[in-house]
Design a protein around this nucleic acid. Structure first.
Lengths: 224, 224
DNA sequence: CGACAGCTTATTGTATACAAAGTGCATTCG
DNA sequence: CGAATGCACTTTGTATACAATAAGCTGTCG
């Protein structure tokens, strides 16, 4: 964390995700610099990173705008994610350690507990879920893959949809994780990849459904 | 092209590709600034971009090094490329215009001419080949996909292998392009994707083969 | 009334100076 | 002799001033 530029990065990023910076609006380096309490130099740095992650676009004359995603863009992102994350699962199946499998199992148990209470603890679910996917990525052991997935995973959140996490979907997610664990137990890459594809596709439809119905006040992660 | 920073980018990039900057060596911003005849500011800009494209790595204390790729990294890159470019072909099949198909056909004719001479004109082959793949990407119409592929396509070149472009492989490449064209003519996404997967996989094996045999003086693009 | 030319202003790009952080070496102490 | 500590030096991070460029506006001319 090189103080200023990282602070600027997180700050701007969270402003985009929270909707404080609305899609389509122009961004001026100096304005952001003041908001973040740093000079333009680290802000420029942060903007380049955010641009690489497609949170920000620049027009032909180098002016920056908050990216504006359509539903088609969303589907494309989920397609890529399904592809990349299946690939990760396949790779992971051939490399994962027993320890990592144990950790996966632990997080999935955590998920079960989080959704078994009378009122589901969604934040806790999301946290375990994120860790679960992270471990798979770790087992896949490919920097390139990790970097690419980072681009695709957080994007959809920009379309701030009110995800009503119905128990049905949370449960399915949990069971799909179980199936992934079985595939890993058998070191079966094809199986793992197939399950992962379905897992992400289901998440997409849950997301798209919620988006159709829904308001866009709250902000949440996408539970895959 | 914002003059200085783009000049720095191209300059550094070509130094890496040409082997002038050898894999593993440390990079100092000021040294590059002098070499490029600009100040450190645009050099830093360029380094960030090159880092995003995995040409450069940074250690925990922010020092930069020329990336060093193993053969495993190479295979992983080709796997990702096969996946992404097949996806692009599938998307393209549903969106490509007759004009684009015509341009594809033109470039593939150019390829045929380039390799039909007594002595194959490899640079010309590579140029047409690049354009061919570019048009498919253009038809796929996904910024995200384009960006990701950019990361994966040029990487292997870093492993400066002497590719002896045997006629056999060049010819196969040409015929695979023809088959892609047929798939596009029928707007058959599955077909296009399947052909593209094989196309890239063959290119990988040709490349790996050459790498095993070979010296590493000359530098060339990878012909897919 | 429309459009184009020229100027004014807003915004980004670059250079430079200085601050902070890290690395390696040398010296000293156990 | 080995290890640890402090200092000098190298390298990167940040701020600021200035240059270049693009956008918008106004006034004039067809």
């Amino acid at each position: 964390m090189s103080r200023a530029s990282d602070r600027a990065y997180s700050h701007i990023r969270s402003m985009i995700l929270s909707g404080e910076l609305q899609p389509g609006v122009q961004i001026r380096e100096e304005a952001l610099a003041e908001l973040c309490g740093v000079s333009r130099t680290p802000v420029r740095d942060a903007l380049r990173r955010l641009e690489a992650e497609l949170f920000i676009r620049r027009n032909e004359s180098q002016r920056s705008f908050v990216a504006d995603w359509s539903l088609d863009d969303l589907e494309e992102a989920f397609q890529l994610r399904a592809m990349l994350e299946s690939h990760a699962a396949r790779r992971a199946a051939g490399r994962i350690s027993w320890d990592q499998i144990a950790r996966l199992r632990m997080h999935n148990t955590g998920i079960k507990q989080a959704i078994s209470a009378e009122t589901p603890d969604v934040p806790r679910f999301l946290d375990h879920n994120r860790q679960f996917h992270m471990i798979i990525l770790e087992a896949a052991a490919s920097d390139r893959l990790t970097g690419m997935l980072a681009q695709v995973i957080e994007q959809p959140v920009v379309l701030r949809t009110a995800l009503q996490y119905d128990l049905e979907n949370l449960m399915r997610s949990h069971h799909e994780h179980d199936e992934l664990l079985a595939a890993f137990d058998h070191r079966d890459g094809d199986w793992a990849a197939a399950v992962m594809t379905g897992h992400i596709r289901r998440a997409f439809h849950a997301y798209a459904e919620a988006h159709k119905k829904g308001a866009d006040q709250p902000l949440n992660d996408v539970a895959a």
